[in-house]
């Protein structure tokens, strides 16, 4: 078995299983901590608030925009860019079709890939530069924040290098970094990709019970 076969085969399976089980374990672990039932007479629906809280926080409030524009642009650029790259880059679709799903969909053209990758890179770099330069960010950041950013950066960088699919080595390096990223993910702050639903939802549910329209 060659190196590429190993990172796309057994190592990828281990990484994917670790990712799925680890993420499930962590989310279920948080939920299982439990919370006391709120018995104050409600004015509105907690369930509706849970959903509303999740949707509302996708949209920044105008009054804060002047002070947070850099983070808004960087954050949206990176996250949307990464999402599009993961699910609409032609090699990713082919890999998912071949190894996991058994079906594929239309990928984006090369020019779109380049454009989206530029946006995602720019966003990630802006967020990280802000993390090391802004006094607030410097104070509150820890090694996990930096490690997660750099690992994700490496995933994207190796992905771009492997885009041409001209060398198996480049593809194998990209896959190796992905495998590491998948294994690291459930134990790290990268889990915010899932835990945000609980966080926004819990606050939204509390507001919803109070009949608040936030």
């Amino acid at each position: 078995m060659g190196f590429l076969d190993f990172v796309e085969g057994p190592l990828f399976v281990i990484a994917a299983i670790t990712f799925v089980l680890g993420a499930l374990w962590r989310v279920i672990g948080i939920i299982r901590i439990g919370r006391k039932k709120d018995i104050s007479p409600p004015k509105g629906s907690a369930a509706a608030g849970f959903i509303k809280g999740n949707l509302r926080h996708f949209f920044p409030r105008g009054i804060f925009a002047r002070r947070t524009w850099l983070h808004i642009i960087g954050g949206y650029g990176f996250h949307i860019g990464l999402f599009v790259l993961v699910f609409f880059a032609a090699p990713h679709i082919a890999f998912l079709d071949d190894r996991i799903l058994g079906f594929g969909w239309q990928g984006m053209p090369r020019w779109a890939f380049v454009l989206v990758a530029d946006v995602a890179f720019a966003g990630l770099i802006v967020l990280w530069v802000r993390r090391i330069s802004d006094p607030v960010m410097r104070l509150i950041s820890d090694w996990e924040d930096h490690f997660g950013s750099w690992l994700t950066f490496l995933v994207m960088l190796t992905g771009c290098l492997a885009m041409q699919q001209s060398h198996d080595v480049l593809r194998a390096v990209h896959m190796l970094v992905i495998d590491v990223w998948l294994i690291y993910f459930p134990f790290s702050r990268l889990m915010h990709a899932f835990t945000f639903v609980l966080s926004r939802g819990n606050t939204g549910a509390t507001y919803g019970r109070k009949g608040m329209n936030l």
Binding site: I30, R32, G34, R35, H71, R131, R189, H192, S199, G201
Partner: peptide, 17 residues
């Protein structure tokens, strides 16, 4: 630290907003 507080600690990405 109930499930609600835990979800907050788990979701914070130290963005400083």
């Amino acid at each position: 630290t109930d499930a609600e507080a835990a979800s907050f600690f788990e979701a914070c990405v130290h963005c400083g907003e």
